[in-house]
Design a protein around this nucleic acid. Structure first.
Lengths: 337, 337
DNA sequence: GATGCAATACGAAACGTTTCATATAATAAG
DNA sequence: CTTATTATATGAAACGTTTCGTATTGCATC
């Protein structure tokens, strides 16, 4: 059905090699250029990327394995990543493993069969076992958001400085006199959760505050989780005077819980949220936030991957750490003791 | 680097055809089976899907072109779709065109170069012009969520009965005596927006109510948009007594606006929301909802696509209309006149 | 141990490109 | 008008599979 280069050759009387050269940006004689272009139009020729891949041994496809597709942080990363990669003619094959270790491994195998040129992974399996085949095949592997310590010198990564981010927020609060600071984390065991907890603990220690487990809650990075975590915090006999929530969905849930509880911000409770709440200018105009550069994460990851691919297999691994930003709102107040 | 079937042939002393048969589920002599499996393990053989694609003329890849990746309705569809397709060994190549007609067309071209076996599209270009090449190539094209009338007999589709969904909600409200019903729609011109508006208007007419433009607002299917739309509705001199919001993000925004405004539900205002709010059991336990079967949409789309692919090119097009469900909560009350 | 018949194995030719090494055409110089 | 020089064109082989049609094997039967 579809026309091939052979058809073009017959139509134009040119050799296959000439056509190939033309399509790959080489110079051909003017009259041949015209000839080729006419034939392409006439036969509706479309280059066959599959054949090209076989010959060149590059699929121009990148596999992306993520834990969940229904998380705005993840999708905004993927979106900016895909944008950059497709502009460079790379296809993005997305595999959602639903935070399941077995599925994650299957996804990697699947992608290896398809001979992806590179692998980008927001890892579920913290041991990194699922990446073995990809590493053995010698393709670049790039972790995002979550580092796997044991793979430090085998892979590249784009992450944010989680401990510093949490520290920023908590120091802000301690600096204003807060000593009972509620923390809403993701799921225990996740890289980001642990790092952010450490940042929190360090900042408390700096301020000479003894941490209290009661104030540390896990909200599973979901809106519902954040809502419940905050409800629990509000139910404590000694309520926290400030609150730091560590992702977007949970911040939303937290705000709903606070509104429903009739808690005034910052009069009754100081709040620092997380991620692109600032987009909802109308809704939470004055929320103090820690912002991750999600678009940059995606772009950085894509560009780093392109670098690795361009280096002809002789790549050295890099860990890119992006920094977060504290956006001042008016959801935090000085605490008079 | 990577081992090929030729290497296996050398290692085992068998012919290529025998190996191919083995890998495609054919029967081989027991001793050969053992031989092959040993060789596969020894050489770390991984089948090359690219070569297979070239030979079989099937890429086992499906292109998915969507307007936005950062919309929970879309991602939950994609997620369930990808799940089904990957189980059948199809790769999903996702292209986010950011609701841009030009990008959408580029995405389709891109996918055609990669010789995807099928195309799934939540269309931005309402004329369908971007699908021309795909249709010309004779691959199955499947629209989701949004129909393109002019392509009715050229493509398949999985949609919901939008007019009926809106009608369900509005009839519920008129049945209880409401006559001033606020409607929060997506963006004007979108298929779903128009259909839902029609459903609303029809239901009003049935109830003998004259529609009032003041009560019809456009929230762009975003949380912020929903928030603002509701704020506007609340600012009216004659406030609506009931509210119907037509997607998940806007419902969230609406609820925030209502909470902030101190509006009690259903005492001050009856509300019907949209989509999987029921997941947030803790947060909005009693919200009456119109639910789209998003998981089914993804699954149906995937299965329909698999059908079309399996039919060896002789497919007939089908439009699958899934129905929505009204989940009763207690956010709607009888209006005493 | 020959004979026949399944069952299984095989060799070679594709699929649509790219890429050599070589050949030809165009241009410049003598 | 040759010859040297460069620019462009070419044929054939390869990439790693699948798929024919045919060849071989194993086994049961005589």
């Amino acid at each position: 059905m579809a026309a091939t280069m052979k058809d073009l050759a017959r139509e134009t009387g040119l050799g296959l090699a000439t056509l190939s050269k033309y399509f790959n940006g080489g110079t051909v004689r003017e009259k041949n250029r015209v000839l080729i272009e006419a034939a392409v139009r006439k036969l509706h020729y479309v280059p066959n990327e599959v054949a090209r891949s076989l010959k060149t041994q590059h699929s121009r496809a990148i596999g992306v394995v993520i834990p969940e597709l229904s998380n705005t942080f993840i999708t905004s990363i993927i979106s900016s990543m895909e944008d950059v990669l497709r502009k460079h003619d790379y296809a993005v094959i997305v595999c959602d493993c639903r935070s399941d270790i077995r599925r994650e491994k299957e996804a990697v195998e699947f992608l290896m069969h398809r001979r992806v040129d590179g692998l980008i992974n927001m890892a579920t399996d913290t041991t990194g076992a699922h990446l073995k085949t990809a590493l053995a095949a010698g393709i670049p592997v790039l972790l995002i958001d979550r580092l796997i310590e044991s793979l430090r010198n085998k892979v590249s990564a784009v992450i944010i400085d989680n401990a510093h981010a949490a520290g920023q927020a908590v120091r802000k609060l301690t600096g204003l006199g807060h000593r009972r600071i509620g923390l809403v984390l993701g799921s225990p065991g996740l890289y980001t959760t642990d790092c952010r907890l450490n940042g929190y603990l360090d900042a408390l220690k700096e301020a000479g505050i003894e941490p209290d487990d009661e104030y540390i809650r896990y909200g599973n990075y979901t809106m519902d989780g954040g809502y419940q975590a905050v409800q629990d915090l509000l139910a404590l006999k000694r309520r926290p005077t400030a609150l730091f929530v560590t992702n977007f969905e949970m911040t939303l849930g937290a705000m709903l819980a606070l509104q429903r509880g009739g808690i005034r911000i910052p009069e009754d409770l100081s709040v620092i949220g997380f991620d692109k709440l600032e987009l909802f200018g109308e809704i939470f105009p004055d929320l103090t936030l820690i912002r991750q550069p999600q678009l940059s994460i995606g772009r950085e990851a894509a560009n780093l991957m392109l670098d690795l691919l361009g280096s002809g297999g002789s790549f050295s691994h890099r860990i890119v750490t992006l920094s977060t930003e504290l956006t001042e709102g008016s959801s935090v107040r000085v605490l008079k003791p």
